[in-house]
Design a protein around this nucleic acid. Structure first.
Lengths: 274, 274
DNA sequence: CGGCGGCTTGATTCGAGTCAAGAACCGTGG
DNA sequence: CCACGGTTCTTGACTCGAATCAAGCCGCCG
């Protein structure tokens, strides 16, 4: 079982994995995500979950898009962490977003086919994937129109994250960029019920996401550790003081708004579960 | 009739405006856009167009979001140019995208309500707007499910533009950023049948979109004029050598791909019209 | 003709990138 | 249990692109 970090990360992955393996699937990450979307009844959710087929594992570092051949299917991340990136000429990478269990990896290609090489999805840790064939998606949407709205909404959520990332990258100083990115990850993880996890990201992953050089990210993480926001344990990225982190990131009210937005999302998730 | 630039720009706006005013609306910008989306029959298109109500004019510089009160409606840009931006603390602006006739100004708020102040839509020139009440949208989607897919697809298209902008801004040198932005505008205008138009953007608009200072944009535009890509006429922005511009922008193959993507889009539009 | 908004220019400052070298750590295989 | 190789992290010196600031210009509009 090759994992970069043992201990907490591994147990975290296993936990999520075990959720994904449960027979009913109603409480797995995909179910959670769909409940978050607040559209569709349990019946619709079950119909969707029944369509997930051909589970597969992908090793860390490998590409996820097109794993199952002709790629006429949606891919759901069941366990692990992935990222959505574009390769830049010259070897660089721009990571658009990180994906967590329950996320659709390639939703953006469903209605808007694009060449494979524009946007790629890569596995940051070993991942479990589920597939839903386009044919089944179409039929399900036809039968349960609200399912179509839920997919649409999921797309919009991804787009809003893109927008926030764009804002974040474009004109903020380096510290804020990193703080914001970390904030977002914490919120996303919380939304699927995971707290205080070690983020399985390398400094290079962070750098590619916030558009800085890796050599520049390092001292920033150190200062965050000095501030008590991150675990003192060098070589791992773990947020231990979420409030403080939000405080640093919110220096710009817009980011506070972003956090609020996501928090609202999270609240509505909890309501939905009640 | 207060317009910053007379002559060509004004006639361009009038042309688009007259399209928007035509009784049937089937060939107006909204009709074109929907045909581009390749989903839905003419019947569905007509149903949609029938829902557009409460046309209104907004003066340049004013905000578009929430013009008609409680904002329980989609807003369609019928004529003019608008932009989608976030205000940065400290007076700055990040322009996410420019909008042209036929674009939905606030599609992103339909399924994902957000505070008003995160993203704003502003009128760059005087604009004509049409409104479709959410209630009507819902009914129409229920009756014509493919309409829902078309909206979804329109959202995805906006998201892909966001992504390209993010790539563009993040790590390209200034000249490429500007060239790419201009490329995108040319392609978007062509898609609604407008060529060789003067872009009614100020250098500050450009700067806010590509994330440079206005003082930095100016010499870049000059060099593009020297290269024969832009009209020699200072104080206006008009692409006169599209091929050359694409050539400059495509220095990075990813951007070429972007252009290809949009070009493909445009082609399928022409097929649909045939 | 006067004022204002946008464009143009240059000097200076600063943040971030690049490069290169070394250290710490992980997982591997002996 | 220990030695090894590769990956990731850490550090510092140097470079460069772009921001900022400030001033002057031009053309449009009242």
């Amino acid at each position: 079982m090759p994992f970069r970090l043992c201990g907490e990360l591994w147990s975290y992955v296993q936990m999520v994995d075990s959720l994904a393996q449960r027979g009913d699937g109603l409480f797995g990450p995909l179910g959670r995500k769909f409940r978050n979307l607040e559209l569709g009844s349990e019946g619709e959710l079950q119909a969707l979950l029944a369509l997930v087929k051909d589970k597969e594992r992908v090793r860390r570092g490998k590409s996820i898009v097109g794993v199952a051949g002709s790629s006429r299917h949606l891919t759901v991340l069941l366990a692990g962490v992935a990222c959505w990136y574009s390769s830049l000429r010259g070897g660089g990478r721009q990571i658009h977003a990180f994906q967590y269990p329950g996320d659709f990896c390639e939703l953006h290609r469903y209605l808007l086919p694009e060449p494979d090489d524009i946007v790629t999805v890569g596995a940051i840790t070993d991942c479990s994937l589920g597939f839903i064939h386009y044919k089944d998606v179409e039929q399900a949407i036809e039968r349960y129109p609200r399912l179509g709205l839920a997919f649409w909404r999921a797309s919009m959520l991804q787009a809003s994250i893109l927008r926030e990332r764009q804002l974040n990258i474009s004109r903020q100083p380096a510290l804020l960029r990193v703080a914001n990115l970390l904030c977002e990850q914490v919120v996303q993880l919380k939304a699927i019920g995971i707290e205080r996890a070690i983020l399985p990201l390398t400094q290079l992953d962070l750098a590619d996401a916030v558009c800085l050089s890796n050599a520049h990210v390092d001292p920033i993480l150190q200062s965050l550790r000095d501030l008590g926001v991150l675990s003192k344990n060098a070589r791992t990225i773990q947020v231990v003081d979420k409030e403080r982190l939000i405080d640093i990131a919110k220096l710009d009210p817009l980011y506070l708004d972003m956090v609020e937005l996501l928090r609202e999302w999270e609240i509505s998730y909890e309501e939905a579960v009640d």
